[in-house]
């Protein structure tokens, strides 16, 4: 073998030129999906400040005022900006309080279902073998149940209510999370840094927590944000079917269902809560897209 001077000056060459510092958070913020971000923040504020913001009680009936159209229509008044329903309740106030229900259900179900799914997915994917097969068959079984059916069954057996709703959605949700997270774990697990962590003396638990988890957090956050919309839809569907939050607590799905009979004469009853659902679900989905890019260190600089 030809001997050349091997004492190359190691710290010269193009690869060692100091990279320009990344542009920091400003660039990323600049690309924030403002419309969806505003809708989300708005909804949070509305849900938190419902008692302050709502012009009327959400449950108090007033039959003389029933079926008033929104303020901008003939016969509408500024007392009820978005009109009233069949029992004379203020639609705007009900929408505002309905945001609370939707967000509470979404937060609780995602926390529980997402958390369980994340844990199961990581353990299943990392352990592999029999445990993996077993857990994934359970996931398969869970996913084959129609969502609505589980919820209806639970509503019948446990009784209607917020708690039942959260349990029902959690039962559906965890399997979806576990499936996707496990897939991610399988690709992460095969990379050398996991092997090197073992070589360096890390325990399995530490590897799962320090190496696997941060690498699937990205996917997990996106799943979360995308499923907020899903949960709100499921909650709305269940309430629509009468298996959700019992009246008189306002929920958007319930409002759509209640207004169905009057769709020809009082369009605002179903249409307005429908628009609320649409905006919020869309906002969370767009936000999820942005979040995915922002969480990826390789893409962050380009944003």
């Amino acid at each position: 073998m030809a001997r050349v001077d091997t004492r190359l000056p190691l710290d010269v060459g193009p690869e060692t030129t100091t990279a320009a510092a990344p542009a920091g958070g400003r660039g990323a913020l600049g690309r924030l999906p403002w419309p969806s971000f505003l809708i989300i923040v708005g909804m949070l504020l509305v849900a938190l400040g419902a008692p302050l913001l709502a012009p009327h009680s959400a449950t108090e009936q007033s039959l003389p005022d029933k079926l008033q159209p929104p303020a901008w229509q003939d016969g509408g008044s500024t007392r009820h900006l978005l009109g009233t329903d069949l029992l004379g309740r203020d639609v705007l106030s009900r929408l505002i309080y309905g945001a609370r229900v939707s967000l509470t259900v979404a937060a609780a179900a995602l926390l529980a279902g997402g958390g369980i799914g994340l844990a199961v997915g990581i353990v299943s994917g990392y352990a592999g073998g029999r445990l993996d097969s077993l857990l994934m068959r359970v996931v398969d079984a869970t996913l084959t149940f129609p969502t609505i059916l589980i919820a209806l069954l639970l509503a019948v057996s446990l009784g209607q209510g917020l708690r039942t709703m959260v349990i029902a959605i959690t039962l559906i949700l965890w399997a979806r999370f576990a499936r996707v997270v496990r897939g991610e774990v399988l690709t992460v697990k095969g990379r050398d840094f996991v092997a090197l962590a073992r070589v360096h003396g890390c325990s399995h638990v530490r590897i799962m927590a320090m190496h696997i988890l941060p690498n699937v957090t990205n996917t997990f956050m996106v799943l979360l944000s995308l499923h907020i919309g899903f949960v709100i839809l499921v909650e709305a569907s269940l309430s629509f079917l009468g298996a959700g939050i019992p009246p008189p607590t306002p929920s958007w799905g319930q409002m759509v269902a209640d207004g169905r009979g009057q769709i020809a004469s009082a369009w605002w009853l179903s249409f307005l809560p429908g628009v609320a659902i649409l905006l919020v679900v869309l906002a969370f989905n767009l936000f999820g897209d942005w979040l995915r890019d922002w969480l990826d260190p390789r893409l962050r600089q380009q944003l």
């Binding site: 990379r191 050398d192 840094f193 092997a195 090197l196 070589v199 360096h200 003396g201 190496h211 941060p214 690498n215 957090t217 990205n218 260190p297 390789r298």
Partner: peptide, 17 residues
């Protein structure tokens, strides 16, 4: 601590996050 190892592929030897 007492035995260590270097693997072939530097592209995946470090945790990307």
């Amino acid at each position: 601590r007492r035995i260590s190892m270097i693997l072939q592929d530097p592209q995946t030897s470090l945790n990307p996050v």
